[in-house]
Amino acid sequence: MRILKMQSKFLDVFLESLNKFGNLYGPTYKNKVLSYDRLANISDLVLTDEHPMIPIKKLFHPMKFTMLHFNEMGFTPDYSTIEKRVILGVHPCEIHSLLILDSVFMREPMDPYYAQLRQNSAIIGFSCLPTENSLCFSTDTDIVEEGFDLFFVNLGEYFLVWVGSSLGHDMIYEREEFFDKNVTHDDIQEYVEWRQKKNKMFKKSFEFDSMPDIMELSYESEIWEEFAKICLSCGQCSMVCPTCNCYSVTDVFDVTNEQIGRRDRNWDSCMYVDYSLVAGGHNFRASRGNRLKLWYGHKLKTFGKDYGRPGCVGCGRCVDSCPVDINVLTISEALTTKEVPEK
């Protein structure tokens, strides 16, 4: 992989020039909340160590969209959400989450909506330093080796820029004057020091590697019931988790006497009571405890069996978001020490 050097003063001009490759998207403030959105100006881009509240999945697996329009003759898929995009400011854990979502949506039969959004989007990654609840050192997702077109590591005066694809190479080629091919021994030394500094900054950690076994051993644990008593089933954890990808599909008829309408797809959560409800009124996970067990199973265990690794990418959003402190930290702590938070 090619690694180049770019002086920080060129950053804004370079990023703005990328609009040649697609509409620019990235983290920006909306009502004081950091959110991935279309950038009207490059000055709206917010490059920070904080993560947007809703992860990058929303740009590939939209919260709510129309999949197709139907009538009595058949249906027409609606691909109107698909456009050429360049997504700026993507942190390593987010890139890892997209690689996990790829294995869900892009294995056969491929999801055409996700696949086209993915194929038409460039990922411009940016390094970050750990914040209060970052757990990516525990989940081994603090560094990326694939899944980006360009990746910028911020070393203060300058950036080291990893070129991860031929599209990334084209982007560099367009503005070659900004990049220096000479990465010196001093630069390498500075990068090594940056990584060492970063590794020491993590305030929280958990036993991610042993969690699959602990989850298996704890299947009948009374701990789940303890958490079930306090879980509000608000579903916020699913909305903010970068690898939660469940959705529900609903047919909406037009207000007419003809047989026409549309099929919508909406984000769903296994924390909601109707998620596992099937015909005949049977519900596989009517109890809150079973719903929690399924969710954490995916994050810390079973997802690994199906897709190679558990779903958690250590972004810490569940720690930031849950109003009653149920998150990967408290769950893994409780299963190993039996300590349940009091809140």
Binding site: N31, K32, V33, K64, G235, Q236, V240, Y272
Partner: peptide, 15 residues
């Protein structure tokens, strides 16, 4: 049968 929180989070509000 979902709480207000579902749409609230989709609207990217801080809880």
């Amino acid at each position: 049968p979902h709480p207000v929180c579902h749409e609230c989070k989709l609207n990217e509000n801080r809880c």
